[in-house]
Design a protein around this nucleic acid. Structure first.
Lengths: 238, 238
DNA sequence: CTCTATTCTCGTACACCGTACGGAAATGAA
DNA sequence: TTCATTTCCGTACGGTGTACGAGAATAGAG
C-alpha cells in the first residue's frame, strides 16, 4: 500500500480477482459464498450508506465470523470492487441498438444515471479507479457497440465511455447531495440565510443578483437531460 | 448525524462556521490558529493524500495536542470544509473577462482543472456537498460574472457552474486514477493481460476490436480540452 | 481405516481512528 | 483578588481494518 494509496490506485490484481481458476477439491467446504457476502454488503450500502458497510456488519448479516470474510476477499477495498460489479448486473440491456449512436449513447447515460440513483453509494465507490469486472465489461461491450457507427478508434471509444461515466457520476453525486441537503429544511434555511448575508455585503453583486432573480426552479431530470444532450450532440467523429 | 450521513449531507452550519462574530476578549489567548491548522492539513493532504489527514497527524504537524484542534474546528468534517476553502484562494483571477462568455467559461474550467491537479484530493473532497466559504464564493462570483452575457436566470447560472465543477472534478478524478495506475508498470501490465484475456474469450468482440485497434494514445490535456469545448460550445441561452 | 495435506472458520489482539470528558492553565473584567 | 471564560490537552472509549494462529472439516494417499 506504500505509495499507491496517495492517488487512489487500485490495489487489486484483476487476474487474481476475476479469473480465479475454480477452487481445488481439497479442504473444508466453504460455508458462505462471495456472491452472498457481496449481496449482503450491497444491501447494507443501499439501506444505510457506504459507511455502514463494515466488515463486522457484513459478517453479522451473513452469519459469519468477521475473519471468515477474508477467505472470500483479500481486503475491504476488494469487497467494494465486488459490490460495484455485482450491481452492474442490473445494467443489462434489453433494447437493441437503434443505429443512431447519439441516441444510443444517451440511452446508455440514462441507464447509468438511474442505476446510480438506485445505488446512491455508486458515485463515491466509482471515484477511485476500478478494474472492470465481468458485468461491468458486459455493459462496456454494449457501449462500445453503440459507438461503432462513429468510426472512432479503440482508445477514443474507451475514452468517450470513461468520460461519459465520469460525467454521469459527477452529476448524480451533485444531484444526491442537493436533494439530501434540501431534505433537511433547517439546514437548507441556514444555508439560504448564510448566502443572503454574503450577498448583502456588497462585494458579491453577481451572487446577489443570481439569488434575487432565481428564475423557475430546475428539475434534476431536465437538467441532466439538457447537459447530456449538449455533451453528446457536441461530440463528433473527427 | 443520525440520518444525514446516508447521503453525505453537510453537517456543518455555515453561519456558525463562516460568519463568526469575532472572538470575545476574555479567556486564555489561542496558541494556534484555524489558518495554521488548515494549512498543515492541506500540506499533509498534498504530500500524502487525504487519508493521511488524521487529527493526530495534523496536531503533531502544528505542535498541538490532538484535542486542542477541537477549539478551532468542531469536527474533522468541518476541517475538510476549511481545507477546500483554504486552497480556493489559489483560484484568484488575474485576467479580466473577455466578454466572450464561452471563452471565459473555458478559462474557468481550465483554472479548476489545474487547481485540482495541484491538490489531487480535491475531487474526492468535493464529492460530498459543501457550503461555499468566502474564497470559494469569490471564485463563484467570477464565474457568475463570466455568465452574465448569457442572460440566463440566477438558478440556471448557478446550475451551469455546479455542473461544470462536477464535470471537471469527474474528469480529473479519472485522469488521476489513470495516471496513478500507469505509474505502477506491474499493475498496468496485469490489467492489460486481464483485459486481453477477456477480449480473447470471444464474448466481447467490441472490446477485442477496441484493444486491437487502439489508435494513437490520447494526452489528458487534449482529451479534457476536447470534451470541455464540446460541452461549452453546446451550451446555449434558450 | 489411518494419515496427511489442504482449506475454511473465527476468537483474540493490535494499531489506529474520531472525539467525549474534565481538570489544569491562562487571561480579562469586576 | 476573585471569578468567568477560554484554550490546552492527557486519558479513555467505542469504533475500524486486519494479522495471527489454533481448531475443524474435508479429500486423497497409503
Amino acid at each position: 500500500m506504500s505509495d499507491d494509496a496517495r492517488s487512489g490506485a487500485a490495489g487489486v490484481d484483476p487476474e487474481q480477482l476475476w479469473l480465479r481458476p475454480a477452487k481445488p477439491r481439497r479442504g473444508r467446504r466453504p460455508s458462505f459464498s462471495r456472491e452472498a457476502i457481496t449481496a449482503a454488503a450491497v444491501a447494507l450500502a443501499d439501506a444505510e450508506g457506504l459507511e455502514a458497510v463494515t466488515m463486522r456488519r457484513v459478517a453479522a448479516e451473513v452469519g459469519a465470523g468477521v475473519m471468515s470474510l477474508y477467505s472470500y476477499t483479500p481486503d475491504k477495498e476488494t469487497l467494494l470492487e465486488l459490490m460495484v460489479d455485482h450491481v452492474s448486473a442490473e445494467l443489462e440491456i434489453t433494447d437493441p441498438l437503434s443505429g443512431d449512436w447519439r441516441a444510443d449513447l444517451k440511452t446508455v447515460a440514462h441507464l447509468q444515471r438511474a442505476h446510480m440513483l438506485r445505488h446512491p453509494w455508486l458515485p463515491a465507490a466509482l471515484s477511485t479507479r476500478r478494474v472492470p469486472g465481468p458485468r461491468t465489461l458486459a455493459f462496456l461491450e454494449h457501449a462500445l457497440a453503440a459507438l461503432r457507427p462513429t468510426g472512432l478508434d479503440g482508445a477514443a471509444k474507451l475514452e468517450v465511455f470513461a468520460q461519459l461515466t465520469a460525467f454521469v457520476a459527477g452529476h448524480v453525486a451533485h444531484e444526491l447531495a442537493q436533494s439530501a441537503a434540501s431534505r433537511s429544511p433547517e439546514r437548507a434555511a441556514a444555508e439560504a440565510r448564510y448566502l443572503a448575508a454574503v450577498a448583502a455585503d456588497g462585494r458579491h453583486p453577481e451572487l446577489a443578483e443570481a439569488l434575487s432573480a432565481p428564475g423557475r426552479p430546475l428539475t434534476p431530470d431536465a437538467t441532466f437531460t439538457r447537459f447530456l444532450n449538449r455533451l453528446i450532440d457536441g461530440l463528433d467523429t473527427d
